[in-house]
């Protein structure tokens, strides 16, 4: 029991355990799933969701939400595709795309932090705006003639891992370290945990919120870039529906919508878990259309049982506190007597 509650307390560990158990079960049914190659494929296909989830975590930690990331990703991919097909160099295109993400995030952040528009409304509006921009830019057509050198990036290996995976890992680790170790990283937690308290001790709450949205936008544009690299063309609906998957991944990984709780590592693992469910279906010979039902069911089960566990935890802590208080009270009396 003790070990179990320790594991449950550390969401990262419990989600790793879940992933491992899941992969093991699928592997028992079909050993092809547990080969290095198919596992690498799993990680590769999870990268976009993972990057988005890392960015979203910053926003969720500050107790806000960003549902515009799918549209930002789509617009970024479209901008990238258009620039590349009109002959702009890869580096310049990439920088322009990142600027798109930053601007989108800035727009959201300023609206939420300074104009006090509820985040869900603000980013819902942005979602519509960016999605519309994308269609206007592309004229509703798919972008197909991405230069080969750019597409080939997906095959570029360093030490056995393709470039997109490296990008994802670097972002994940960097975000983890910033949040974990730097003073500024802790501000994201503080703002989400207790905004008034944060303001009182001099944390620039509004700036932190804006930055969170900028990082989320930035991650979405990186995801858009990787989409172009991986897929090699840009369909109209690129990124649509991603926003809800991203939030699902982050929540699955233990990031709380109430702010101040969770890690990017968890969010990334959540993304991998969601993808693992998706890619395992083939190996289990389950038709692909089962994917949503299974993901949704698992998300509900995990989230509900986690909530039950947390309230159980709070209860037992209360009891501990009660006895501690009684003892503390006794000591206090002795001291004053």
């Amino acid at each position: 029991m003790n070990l179990l509650s320790k594991i449950m307390k550390q969401r990262e560990i419990s989600i790793v355990v879940l992933i491992v158990v899941f992969i093991a079960i699928v592997g028992m049914v079909n050993s092809k799933f547990v080969t290095g190659k198919s596992l690498l494929l799993l990680v590769e296909s999870a990268i976009i969701l993972l990057i988005l989830a890392v960015g979203q975590s910053f926003v969720l930690l500050t107790r806000e939400i960003d549902v515009s990331v799918g549209a930002t990703m789509g617009l970024s991919a479209a901008v990238c595709g258009l620039l590349l097909t009109s002959g702009v160099s890869g580096w310049v295109s990439a920088l322009a795309v990142l600027a798109v993400g930053v601007l989108a995030g800035l727009f959201n952040g300023l609206g939420v932090a300074y104009l006090r528009i509820p985040a869900i409304i603000m980013t819902l509006g942005t979602l519509g705006i960016l999605r519309g921009f994308m269609i206007i830019l592309t004229g509703g057509k798919w972008i197909e003639d991405i230069p080969n050198y750019f597409k080939k990036l997906s095959g570029t290996d360093f030490i056995g891992l393709p470039l997109p995976v490296w990008i994802g890992l670097v972002i994940l680790v960097a975000a983890y370290l910033v949040l974990r170790l730097t003073k500024f990283g802790r501000y994201f937690y503080a703002v989400g945990d207790n905004a008034d308290g944060a303001r009182l001790i001099g944390i620039p709450v509004s700036k932190v919120r804006v930055l969170a949205f900028v990082l989320s936008g930035l991650s979405a544009s990186v995801a858009g870039l990787i989409f172009v690299i991986n897929i090699g063309f840009v369909p109209n609906q690129t990124g649509s529906g991603m926003e809800l998957q991203v939030i699902a991944a982050a929540v699955l990984g233990g990031v709380s919508l109430n702010g101040g709780l969770g890690t990017v590592l968890g969010a990334g693992l959540g993304a991998i878990f969601l993808t693992a469910i998706n890619s395992s279906l083939i190996y289990l010979k389950i038709p692909a259309y089962w994917n949503n039902a299974i993901s949704g069911f698992l998300l509900l089960v995990i989230v509900i049982s986690d909530s039950r566990f947390q309230s159980f935890l709070a209860n037992s802590q209360f009891k501990k506190k009660e006895t501690a208080e009684a003892e503390g009270g006794g000591q206090g009396d002795e001291a004053t007597l």
Partner: peptide, 14 residues
């Protein structure tokens, strides 16, 4: 108080 932070962090943050 920051409910999800430790006492140490609560005291030293910022």
């Amino acid at each position: 108080i920051f409910p999800n932070m430790t006492i140490r962090e609560n005291v030293t943050i910022g």
